[in-house]
Structure formats: C-alpha cells, structure tokens
C-alpha cells in the first residue's frame, strides 16, 4: 500500500509535478500494482545472485582515440534556451523551494 505522502516524496525525487487528483489516483493505481508485485517478496531467494546483465561480456573498452565533436551550433540546435555561454537554465537555488 502506497500512502499519499510517499507518492509526493517519490514524485519530488522524479521531478514530476502531480496535481492532487493525479497524486491520489497514482497512490491507488501504484498500490494495486505493488500488491500484485509483492508476491515475489515471499520467494525463497537465499543465496541467489542478482542478474544485472544477461550477456556474458566483460571489458568492453575503447581506445583513447578522439573522434570529432559537434560545433556549438549543432550542440545547441535543439536547446530551448541557447545562449553564447551555453544551455540556458534558471539558476539552481533560485525561487521557491
């Protein structure tokens, strides 16, 4: 069961603004999904190694050789706020927390 305050915390971590209605609905929907998922927590998995990769590969390394870079114009082509100094953003730490 996911409480509303947990939903608010997770939404804040994920940088998702949720309206009251959305947050309540999210709590209900996620709780239902989690109820289903929870079943695996009762499995006996002692001593089982976690799988992060299904491929049996190691050391995919590349040589330290430079490739070309984009021009600043190319880099900034899709930017919402291109400036001479770079990608414009509101300064961190500004405004209401």
């Amino acid at each position: 069961m996911l409480e509303r305050h947990q939903v608010d915390h997770v939404a804040r971590l994920a940088r998702l603004e949720l309206s009251d209605v959305e947050a309540d609905r999210m709590a209900t929907e996620l709780s239902k999904i989690l109820d289903h998922i929870e079943a695996i927590r009762s499995l006996d998995l002692a001593g089982v190694q976690p799988t992060s990769h299904v491929v049996d590969l190691v050391n995919a390394l590349r040589a330290d050789a430079p490739h070309g870079s984009l021009t600043p114009e190319q880099a900034l082509a899709a930017a919402p706020e291109p400036t001479a100094a770079g990608f414009g953003v509101p300064s961190p730490g500004q405004g209401a927390e």
Partner: peptide, 11 residues
C-alpha cells in the same frame, strides 16, 4: 518577466 537569474551549461 520574473527576472529569474539565469545560468548556462558548458558541456
């Protein structure tokens, strides 16, 4: 409009 302070990112 809000006079927000701006920063720019150089990658």
């Amino acid at each position: 409009i809000h006079g927000a302070e701006r920063s720019a990112v150089d990658f």
